[in-house]
Amino acid sequence: MKRPKTFINRVLHRHETYLTLIIILFSVVTANVAPAFLTAGNILSLLRGGAGLGLLSLAFFVALISGGIDISFPAIAISAQYITVRTMLAIDVNSLVFAFVLASAIGIVYGLINAFLITRFKLPALIVTLGTSNLYHGGLLQFLGTESVNVGGLPTAFSDFGRMSLFQISTEQGTLGISLFFVIFVIAIVLTWFILRHTMLGRGIYAIGGDEEAARRAGFNVSRIQYFIYAYVGFLSAIMGIIHVSMIQYANPTNIVGTILLRVIAAVILGGTSISGGRGTVTGTLLGFVLIVLIDRHLIMLGVPAEWTDFFVGIVIVLGVLATHIRLRLERKRLGELVVERAH
């Protein structure tokens, strides 16, 4: 029995629709409780502050589509950031372009190392990236030390970058504009979307996620595509690292790692991307990301005490994951598939 392909049916059964509804619902509730939510200032601040998380979500999403996974991206982000800052200080360079170039190079190299271990030795990506995460981060702290660089010591390129924005307007609260961080994020979105949708490389990524062996037989160069994927993850993570330091004006090598992983994974999974690969959309990932950002930053506005925010975000993630997968399970049962309880 097939559902009629009407527009309503197609829309109703898409994961993205549910997400959008929940986002709207949440926004309405929050706006009611705290009118400050709907101000331009707040929204622009959200765009600015969320760009980092967004970049990492895109990165993780690409890895997941291919049927792989990469949990070393926080370590890559902070490594790229800290190494770049210390290098710039050491050789007395104050160029933002230099920062981006160096950080990207580091991110790409780290990503290539991940890819090498995963493809050459056919090792499970989860464990490999767990290992490299500690390799990169432990190595960073060991060989470069734990000294933070605060706003006074940072090359001014970063603080300048942090102030840059597009379309500035003057209001009574001061100058408001769309932060350049957000612009970079948008560029990354478009780039990712383009690669995935309009290049053979991108279709290859989806194909590998669908059936790796079939992809090989079909002629896709699976190894090369995987090298690209993990290098891309490293690249986006490195960009995030630079944005991060420009935003908080503080380079502490113990940052990022430890706090952001859950939120990124939650954003991507809630966005409807399957952990086993092959299914997911950029749109979905963005919606998931929006939901996580909204919840993360507005719990306090809704009156949740500071020490309980982690818990509530955790509840939301667990409930969201439950909802997503229960729907999936019911759908599969409806299609007559035999669903068996399992751990993976």
């Binding site: 996620g209 669908g210 059936d211 079939a214 037989r217 079909a218």
Partner: peptide
């Protein structure tokens, strides 16, 4: 027999 196709495409 398994056709080697991509179910997700």
């Amino acid at each position: 027999q398994d056709l080697s196709l991509f179910p997700n495409l």
